[in-house]
Write a protein that binds this DNA or RNA. Structure first.
Length: 482
RNA sequence: GGCGAGUUGGCGGAGUGGUUACGCAGCGGAUUGCAAAUCCGUGUAUAUCGGUUCGAUUCCGAUACUCGCCUCCA
């Protein structure tokens, strides 16, 4: 099956041809680990996780290498560590910095796992690759593409004529835009930092240019080279990274003599209720915040998949509700046709666990996840258990099911339901059943209205009543009936 | 100021040079003690103005509006 991907380099969709089909290689810029991941951080993770899953489906589970870094050289990490030290925390500053990075990485992996993201095959930390970064900088200096001055190593932008081609900018225009900071020691205002000196309260490494630390951009170039080689298939990240980060990566790596990435992919940004998420607007929240509110990770993921990755995505409460209903409806259909964790295992063992060709085709067209979801609605109309296999397969393939035990939980909104609630509800249902049996419709409806007011949805099928918690569940209404 | 992306029905959201997917909501029907749930059916859209074309929502240009990046904020 052929995949088409939009390559930022060419500004169009092109057929994806791997360098080596038995080892497809992808690099994605990971987080700076100074705090909990906010919702915007989740977008590239989900987008490229979906691509990772698609690539693994097509080329084989063991034939895709996905590297995503952790940037653990950063002023904010240092600031946190320093604050902790001043507050009396034990250990050296280096220890405290490492501690902060470790805990943030752990949070990140937990939160992303909750969103159904597989762990990348490689997760390098910048601090483990300083040697390689220094080597690369030395190489660039030797080749005349970089220079040392006042403890800094700077990339000589004018030495690379292609500079700006990835992000579609010209050096002259940018300078004309007058937003370039002029620093006296730079040969040219566009030149960017490869290495900079560290003060005593900052972490540092010894280098030919003195005690210091690497610039941000060189990290990714060095790690990608070490883990994926000089030429690899896909480089991904948010489109905010296109300039300067990716432009600089490409410049460094190309000048160092490497082909670097064949396909550049950029996801669009996230907004919240139509506005950019920012602390000043007060609409800033983390993935963990949502999970704590009881929004399932799979629901969050589905909201992301509802919008194509190259379009701005709006997180809204309405979409959260819609995604929840969508996912729940699919599980209801599967349960109705006898699906359980056991039947899924059986299907997989028997070789009947197959994908829908049309859906895979849609998904392969530049990761058209909304199109794939539309196809799933059609697949969900199947009237037989075997006919629903492609739907179940798609749910798992898109990371919307991490554990098929979801099929066992019938009315599963357990977290927000105190123990006494089902007891009260069952009693009211029983009373209503008695009223119905004696054709006391007034009383029966009064009880149902009461349950509805509490957000409990009552459903009569073939004479017996069942119930589900609706989105507006409010236990307070039932409190007095305990 | 420079560069880029976008504008599809009430809402969300795809594809496509030739009757506009799909979901939600709405409406009609079946079913129901009445509802709900379910099932069946159904109306409504390609920002504006030009151009190319037999034909444009799709290609090109302009206008308006929105958003992003240029400021280590993903």
């Amino acid at each position: 099956m052929a995949i088409k991907l939009y390559n930022t380099k060419f500004r169009k969709r092109v057929e994806f041809i791997p360098i080596n089909e038995s080892d497809v290689r992808m690099y994605v810029c990971g987080p700076t680990v100074y705090d909990r991941a906010h919702l915007g951080n989740a977008r590239p993770v989900i987008v490229f996780d979906t691509l990772f899953r698609l690539l693994r489906y097509i080329y084989g589970l063991d034939h895709v290498t996905y590297a995503r870094n952790f940037t653990d050289v950063d002023d904010k990490i240092n600031a946190t560590a320093l604050a902790r030290q001043q507050a009396g925390a034990l250990g050296t500053l280096e220890d405290l910095i490492a501690e902060r990075s470790d805990e943030t990485i752990k949070w990140y992996l937990e939160d992303m796992a909750a969103l159904g993201a597989l762990e990348p095959t490689k997760m390098p930390r910048a601090t483990q690759y300083v040697t390689q970064m220094i080597e690369m900088i030395e190489d660039l200096i030797a080749k005349g593409n970089a220079y040392e001055i006042e403890g800094h190593a700077l990339f000589r932008v004018r030495s690379y004529p292609e500079y700006g081609s990835l992000s579609g900018r010209s050096v002259d225009d940018m300078i004309a835009g007058a937003r370039v900071e002029v620093v006296p020691y730079k040969e040219d205002p566009m030149d960017f930092v490869l290495w900079k000196p560290s003060s005593d309260d900052q972490p540092g490494w010894n280098s030919p240019w003195g005690h210091g630390r690497p610039g941000w951009h060189i990290e990714c170039s060095a790690m990608a080279l070490d883990l994926l080689g000089g030429e690899f298939d896909i480089h991904g990240g948010g489109n905010d990274l296109m300039f300067p980060h990716h432009e600089n990566e490409a410049a460094q790596s190309t000048c160092a003599g490497h082909e670097f990435a064949n396909v550049w992919m950029h996801n669009e940004m996230l907004q919240v209720e139509g506005k950019k998420m920012s602390k000043s607007l007060g609409n800033f929240f983390t993935v963990r915040d949502l999970l704590k509110q009881g929004v399932a990770g799979e629901v969050i993921r589905l909201v992301f998949l509802m919008t194509h990755y190259r379009k701005p995505m709006d997180w809204t409460d309405a979409k959260r509700v819609e995604a929840h209903k969508m996912l729940n409806d699919w599980f209801v259909v599967l349960r109705k046709h006898g699906y359980s964790p056991k039947t899924v295992d059986k299907l997989k063992a028997s070789g009947d666990w197959v994908a829908d060709i049309e859906l895979m085709g849609v998904l392969s067209n530049d990761l058209n996840t909304p199109g794939a979801l539309a196809r799933m609605h059609v697949l969900a109309k199947a009237r037989t258990a075997s006919g629903l296999v492609p739907l179940a397969h798609a749910l798992e393939m898109l990371g919307l099911v991490s554990d098929w035990n979801v099929l066992d939980a019938s009315s599963s909104q357990d977290d927000r339901m105190p123990d006494w609630v089902p007891v009260v509800i069952d009693r009211l249902i029983a009373e209503r059943g008695a009223a119905r049996a004696s054709k006391d419709w007034g009383e029966a409806d009064r009880l149902r209205d009461l349950l509805n007011t509490a957000g409990v949805q009552v459903t009569d099928v073939a004479g017996t009543a069942s119930w589900l918690l609706g989105s507006g569940f409010n236990p307070v209404v039932l409190e007095g009936l305990k």
